[in-house]
């Protein structure tokens, strides 16, 4: 592990120094989602048009008459980032072909939270990916509807307490496991699907660049730590992102033309999920038996993924 760590420490200086998402945004202290967004924007550069769904990143960035965006940006509604992004892509293509705008390659990029991706936005996302638009869709997944006050989404993990899946006496938080949307995107035969986490910035940046280079649809699911919604300390944001990967709860991988590949070194033995859970208030109600159940679910999902990594051939 030490070589990997050293490598990661010294490369930050190779990153684009320009910021495309300005300071002065209203994200909470220690927000992992806005950090993910900041790094994504650095990796994308300035030849993009952003279509953003309603959500945390929209609300904290664009209170008229101010904007934190240094690149062209549009927000229309909650569930339609995929559709707006596909309209932008079609228009850029047609106008460039017809010589009405500069002959410059510009990528259409859609960005949504987990609600705007895995729940209310799933249909528009599915349509955009299926139609093969030349665009990237980023899901910034903070595992609940944080913007409206921490209500559960289908990306909320098993047993987590939210305001609509509270840790009650009869029902202990979220009743089901996280919906696996990267898998749904793989099933769309999208040429590039990846998971990423801002605690691994170089991995994240590489994936964003790869997704941008794909000629066609690409999907990147970015784990976004949320101290406010998870009831965790703001300074532990990055640590939580590392733990979620080291415990195997949110594995970092990419699927290129159907071929699965783990992008971070796979430990021989995963860290126990408890290391991750105990730092967060949303899992405070879990007893040893509950943690065992979470561990069993994580183990099962991990085995499923490992089978795919071992067996799936590229198309």
């Amino acid at each position: 592990m030490s070589t990997v760590q050293n490598f990661e420490i010294y490369v930050p200086k190779l990153l684009d120094k320009r910021e495309f998402f300005s300071a002065g945004h209203r994200a909470c202290q220690g927000c992992g989602e806005v950090l993910a967004l900041r790094l994504i924007m650095k990796a994308l550069g300035d030849d993009v048009v952003i279509s953003n769904a309603t959500g945390c990143m929209e609300i904290i960035s664009s209170a008229y008459p101010q904007t934190a965006w240094e690149v062209p940006y549009i927000h229309v509604a909650f569930e339609n980032a995929g559709a707006v992004g596909s309209g932008v892509e079609a228009a850029l293509k047609a106008l460039r072909r017809k010589g009405r705008i500069a002959d410059r390659y510009v990528k259409s990029v859609a960005i949504a939270g987990d609600g705007g991706t895995v729940d209310i936005g799933l249909q528009a996302l599915s349509g955009a990916m299926e139609r093969g638009h030349d665009m990237v869709f980023f899901c910034l997944d903070n595992e609940a509807y944080m913007n409206t006050g921490i209500q559960r989404s289908s990306a909320t993990p098993f047993m987590a307490a939210t305001t609509t899946s509270p840790a009650g006496k009869a029902i202990k938080g979220q009743r089901t496991g996280k919906k696996n949307v990267p898998e749904i995107m793989v099933a769309h035969n999208v040429p590039y699907v990846a998971t990423a986490c801002p605690s691994y910035p170089i991995d994240l940046v590489n994936k964003v660049k790869k997704a941008k280079e794909v000629k066609g649809p690409a999907y990147v699911h970015v784990f976004s730590m949320c101290p406010t919604g998870w009831r965790s300390a703001s300074e532990q944001t990055i640590k939580l992102g590392r733990l979620v990967v080291e415990t195997g709860i949110f594995p970092l991988y990419e699927v290129e033309n159907g071929k699965y590949r783990m992008t971070m070194e796979i430990p021989k033995k995963l860290r126990p999920v408890e290391d991750y859970l105990k730092l967060q208030g949303r899992f405070r109600h879990l007893n040893a038996d509950d943690i065992e159940k979470v561990q069993a679910l994580v183990n099962k999902e991990w085995r499923k993924l490992m089978n795919k990594v071992a067996c799936m051939k590229p198309w």
């Binding site: 300005s22 300071a23 002065g24 945004h25 209170a63 008459p65 101010q66 904007t67 934190a68 240094e70």
Partner: peptide, 18 residues
Amino acid sequence: INPGCMVFIPGNASTYHT
């Protein structure tokens, strides 16, 4: 108010000091 509440100055949120 600008038509459609468009903002023509990129990154002008930086005038808001958090």
